[in-house]
Amino acid sequence: MNVIETTGLTKTYRRMNAVDDFTVTINDNTITGVIGRNGAGKTTLLKMLAGLIKETSGDVRVFHEHPFNSLYASANSILIDDQMLFPEALTLSELLAQGARFYPGWDEAFAQQLFDYFSFEPKQIHEHLSKGKKSTFNMIFGLATRCALTIFDEPTTGMDAAVRKDMYRVLLKDYLAHPRTILISSHHLEEVEHILENILLIDDGTLHLHKSVEELKEYAVRLTGPTALLGQWLYNKDVLHKKQHSSDMMEVVVKRDFPLEQAERMGFHVTPVAPSDVCIYLTAKSEGGIDDVFK
């Protein structure tokens, strides 16, 4: 079943397209990473999916309904982000109690166990928590809803490395026990890629690619070799990134659409490119990098 379907989805702010002609389909029971640079339109897209904001044009369907003002979509989806405000009059344990009242699939035991594990106090107020603690609570809340579509927008803001690792482990284990559709946007792809099935790469509000993580891992290779030889060999290759090591050594990242033996036989050093790097190169504004600025 398709949980999310968008066609030509566009959102315009002050004549700028934050999300631009975006067409994508996301199946049920998948974990998809929504990846892109700051301001690429990730948050805008996710908020439209959650029914918080309304598209300027195009169409968006969540469980075959238009999420903006759909009670059905609201009951079966949730967006967790670091700007979430919870009512200040309620304590953390009261918030969990409200979650249980509203969300039919709420898992009380799960919420309580994590609540205790991460040492929250029942009487604490969300507003008074530290940034990392807020994020941790929000994630617990989001997972406990067991919503068929659970969206996390930069869920680990402010968490320390150990907690981040724990939370992604929790997310995976909970997903294994209760498969559902999960979207996670993150700046740190390398931290989440192991639990992702697919990656949605967004650049300038448009869909750049939608592939499985495994495909993305084999999308490009890094070649290192003598500048003259490598430069010549590259003439009909799709170069994503170039870096000059020294005057006669060069490193390039190319799309992997040729047998690797070809490059190895030329004596180039061939290494894989991590998906996070592929994403960076694909959305870079030029072939070079920050080093070019200093030339």
């Binding site: 998948t30 974990i31 482990r169 995976l172 294994l176 192991h194 992702l196 099935e197 993580v213």
Partner: peptide
Amino acid sequence: MFNINPAT
């Protein structure tokens, strides 16, 4: 066991 996505 390996902390990876089941599809993988």
